[in-house]
Protein backbone atom coordinates (compact mmCIF):
# COMPACT_ATOMS: atom_id res chain seq x y z
CA UNK A 1 0.00 0.00 0.00
CA UNK A 2 1.59 3.18 -1.13
CA UNK A 3 -0.38 5.78 0.80
CA UNK A 4 -3.32 6.62 3.02
CA UNK A 5 -5.25 7.79 -0.05
CA UNK A 6 -4.88 4.36 -1.57
CA UNK A 7 -6.14 2.84 1.67
CA UNK A 8 -9.22 5.06 1.85
CA UNK A 9 -10.07 4.25 -1.75
CA UNK A 10 -9.72 0.56 -1.12
CA UNK A 11 -11.81 0.64 2.03
CA UNK A 12 -14.52 2.60 0.24
CA UNK A 13 -14.57 0.07 -2.56
CA UNK A 14 -14.66 -2.90 -0.19
CA UNK A 15 -17.48 -1.36 1.83
CA UNK A 16 -19.51 -0.60 -1.26
CA UNK A 17 -19.09 -4.12 -2.44
CA UNK A 18 -20.25 -5.51 0.90
CA UNK A 19 -23.19 -3.12 1.03
CA UNK A 20 -24.07 -4.04 -2.52
CA UNK A 21 -24.84 -7.45 -1.15
CA UNK A 22 -27.36 -5.91 1.15
CA UNK A 23 -29.79 -4.74 -1.48
CA UNK A 24 -33.44 -5.75 -1.33
CA UNK A 25 -34.16 -9.41 -1.79
CA UNK A 26 -30.55 -10.37 -1.58
CA UNK A 27 -29.78 -13.00 0.97
CA UNK A 28 -26.44 -13.63 2.58
CA UNK A 29 -25.88 -17.06 3.99
CA UNK A 30 -23.25 -16.96 6.69
CA UNK A 31 -21.48 -20.20 7.42
CA UNK A 32 -18.73 -20.66 9.98
CA UNK A 33 -15.86 -22.67 8.66
CA UNK A 34 -13.72 -23.13 11.76
CA UNK A 35 -12.28 -26.49 12.64
CA UNK A 36 -15.14 -27.07 15.09
CA UNK A 37 -17.66 -26.42 12.37
CA UNK A 38 -15.78 -28.63 9.96
CA UNK A 39 -15.60 -31.38 12.52
CA UNK A 40 -19.32 -30.98 13.01
CA UNK A 41 -19.83 -31.49 9.27
CA UNK A 42 -20.13 -28.02 7.80
CA UNK A 43 -18.48 -29.06 4.53
CA UNK A 44 -21.33 -31.42 3.71
CA UNK A 45 -23.81 -28.75 4.68
CA UNK A 46 -22.11 -26.29 2.38
CA UNK A 47 -22.16 -28.76 -0.47
CA UNK A 48 -25.83 -29.48 0.06
CA UNK A 49 -26.57 -25.81 0.08
CA UNK A 50 -24.66 -25.18 -3.11
CA UNK A 51 -26.48 -28.06 -4.76
CA UNK A 52 -29.80 -26.64 -3.66
CA UNK A 53 -28.88 -23.24 -5.09
CA UNK A 54 -27.91 -24.78 -8.42
CA UNK A 55 -30.86 -27.13 -8.50
CA UNK A 56 -33.47 -24.44 -7.84
CA UNK A 57 -31.74 -21.84 -9.97
CA UNK A 58 -31.44 -19.42 -7.12
CA UNK A 59 -29.51 -16.29 -8.02
CA UNK A 60 -30.03 -13.81 -5.20
CA UNK A 61 -27.93 -15.61 -2.64
CA UNK A 62 -24.32 -15.39 -1.64
CA UNK A 63 -22.60 -17.71 0.75
CA UNK A 64 -20.19 -15.99 3.12
CA UNK A 65 -17.71 -18.25 4.78
CA UNK A 66 -16.50 -16.90 8.09
CA UNK A 67 -14.44 -18.16 10.98
CA UNK A 68 -15.67 -19.67 14.20
CA UNK A 69 -18.34 -17.72 16.05
CA UNK A 70 -17.51 -19.41 19.30
CA UNK A 71 -20.82 -21.18 19.70
CA UNK A 72 -19.24 -24.54 19.08
CA UNK A 73 -21.82 -26.66 20.82
CA UNK A 74 -24.40 -25.68 18.21
CA UNK A 75 -22.32 -25.97 15.04
CA UNK A 76 -22.88 -26.20 12.15
CA UNK A 77 -24.63 -22.85 12.29
CA UNK A 78 -26.18 -21.32 9.21
CA UNK A 79 -27.26 -17.70 9.42
CA UNK A 80 -29.56 -16.21 6.80
CA UNK A 81 -29.36 -12.45 6.49
CA UNK A 82 -31.62 -10.20 4.53
CA UNK A 83 -31.81 -6.44 4.56
CA UNK A 84 -34.20 -5.10 7.15
CA UNK A 85 -34.85 -8.49 8.64
CA UNK A 86 -33.74 -10.10 11.82
CA UNK A 87 -31.13 -12.71 10.92
CA UNK A 88 -32.34 -16.30 11.09
CA UNK A 89 -29.93 -18.63 12.83
CA UNK A 90 -30.18 -22.35 12.21
CA UNK A 91 -28.13 -24.61 14.40
CA UNK A 92 -26.84 -28.17 14.23
CA UNK A 93 -27.71 -28.12 10.55
CA UNK A 94 -27.42 -31.35 8.61
CA UNK A 95 -27.12 -31.63 4.80
CA UNK A 96 -30.73 -32.81 4.71
CA UNK A 97 -31.92 -29.76 6.58
CA UNK A 98 -29.66 -27.50 4.52
CA UNK A 99 -31.28 -28.63 1.27
CA UNK A 100 -34.65 -27.54 2.63
CA UNK A 101 -34.07 -24.49 4.74
CA UNK A 102 -32.37 -22.32 2.14
CA UNK A 103 -34.90 -22.63 -0.71
CA UNK A 104 -37.74 -22.29 1.78
CA UNK A 105 -36.40 -18.97 2.98
CA UNK A 106 -35.33 -17.62 -0.37
CA UNK A 107 -38.25 -18.74 -2.50
CA UNK A 108 -41.11 -18.87 -0.03
CA UNK A 109 -39.93 -16.65 2.81
CA UNK A 110 -40.49 -19.46 5.27
CA UNK A 111 -38.56 -20.18 8.41
CA UNK A 112 -38.51 -23.64 9.90
CA UNK A 113 -38.60 -22.72 13.53
CA UNK A 114 -37.84 -26.07 15.03
CA UNK A 115 -34.39 -26.01 13.51
CA UNK A 116 -33.43 -22.53 14.60
CA UNK A 117 -31.53 -21.48 17.64
CA UNK A 118 -34.80 -20.09 18.98
CA UNK A 119 -36.34 -23.49 18.78
CA UNK A 120 -33.83 -24.91 21.19
CA UNK A 121 -35.39 -25.01 24.60
CA UNK A 122 -31.96 -25.60 26.10
CA UNK A 123 -31.32 -21.88 25.74
CA UNK A 124 -34.27 -20.84 27.86
Amino acid sequence: MASMQAYYALRERALNRLQGLEKEDFITVEIHMGICSQAAGVLDVLKAMEEAIAHKNISNVTIAKTGCAGFCAYEPLVILKKKGRRPVTYCRVTPEKARVLLPEYVLKDRIIEAWTLNGKDVLL
Binding site: I35, C36, A39, C72, A73, E75
Partner: peptide
Protein backbone atom coordinates in the same frame (compact mmCIF):
# COMPACT_ATOMS: atom_id res chain seq x y z
CA UNK B 1 -8.61 -27.43 19.69
CA UNK B 2 -12.07 -28.79 19.02
CA UNK B 3 -12.72 -28.73 22.75
CA UNK B 4 -16.29 -27.57 22.34
CA UNK B 5 -17.22 -30.86 20.73
CA UNK B 6 -15.27 -33.43 22.70
CA UNK B 7 -14.46 -36.22 22.89
CA UNK B 8 -12.82 -35.95 19.48
CA UNK B 9 -11.27 -38.66 17.34
CA UNK B 10 -9.44 -38.07 14.05
CA UNK B 11 -9.05 -40.72 11.39
CA UNK B 12 -6.64 -39.51 8.73
CA UNK B 13 -8.11 -36.10 7.85
CA UNK B 14 -11.62 -36.67 9.15
CA UNK B 15 -12.60 -35.35 12.54
CA UNK B 16 -15.29 -37.18 14.49
CA UNK B 17 -16.92 -35.26 17.32
Amino acid sequence: GACGLGPVVTINDTVYT
